[in-house]
Amino acid sequence: MRGLLASLDSPTARAIADARLEPLRAHDAAAGSALLETVRTWLAHDARIDEAARVLGVHRHTVRARVAQAQQLLGVDLSSFPARAELWAALVAADATA
């Protein structure tokens, strides 16, 4: 990791990221869903539903429904770039522990 995103590799950033992502992790664990993986894939493909669906091997409506559910659980509107950027930063910080 380089540049500004490298600063997300810190204990503080990881703690914030873990707290931010906990609703998705908890839901996935309880329901056997794949919200976290779906949102990560969707964001990695520039929030393109069809591309994320292809990569995940699911129907585009499944991706759309999962993203909508993630928005509800996180209490954010992922149609806005700042919300997507913050979520991406949380995913990057969380990955720094892996």
Rank of each mutant, 00 (worst) to 15 (best):
L8D: 00
A68R: 06
A34L: 12
V58I: 15
I16S: 11
Q72S: 12
A83T: 05
D46F: 14
A93Q: 02
S10V: 09
R2C: 09
T62I: 09
L56E: 02
Q71M: 15
A15S: 10
T38M: 08
P82R: 12
S80M: 12
H61P: 01
T97P: 00
H59I: 05
A52C: 08
A89T: 01
V67K: 03
A94T: 02
E51F: 09
G3V: 06
Q72C: 06
G57A: 12
A17C: 03
A90W: 13
A6E: 05
A6I: 06
G32L: 06
L87C: 05
E51R: 14
V63L: 11
A6F: 13
P23I: 13
A94W: 13
M1Y: 12
S7Y: 15
R48C: 10
L4P: 00
A65V: 07
A19F: 09
Q71Y: 09
P23T: 10
L24E: 01
G57R: 13
A94H: 11
A52P: 00
P23V: 12
V92R: 02
A34Q: 04
A34K: 06
F81P: 01
V76C: 13
V92C: 03
V76Y: 09
A47R: 04
A13I: 05
H27V: 04
Q71K: 10
D95P: 00
G75P: 00
R60P: 02
I49L: 13
L36V: 03
Q72A: 14
D28C: 05
P23G: 13
D18F: 14
A68M: 05
V58F: 13
H27C: 04
R84V: 04
E22I: 02
A6S: 09
A68W: 07
A30R: 10
R40D: 03
Q71F: 08
V55I: 15
A83E: 09
A26L: 13
Q72L: 15
T38N: 00
L73N: 02
R14A: 14
R40A: 15
D95S: 15
L73S: 04
A26T: 05
D46S: 10
R66K: 13
H45A: 06
L36W: 08
G3F: 13
R40N: 06
S80E: 14
A44M: 11
R48M: 11
H61T: 10
E51T: 06
S10H: 14
A30W: 07
A96Q: 05
E37V: 07
A93L: 11
A96R: 08
V55M: 11
T12P: 00
W88S: 04
A6C: 06
P82G: 06
L87D: 00
P23N: 12
S80W: 09
D28M: 07
A44C: 08
A26M: 07
S79W: 11
L35N: 01
L21H: 05
D50A: 15
A52Y: 10
R20S: 08
A65D: 02
A29T: 00
A44R: 11
L21R: 04
V55Q: 09
L87S: 04
D9M: 12
V55E: 04
A85V: 03
L21S: 03
G57I: 10
T62V: 15
A47F: 12
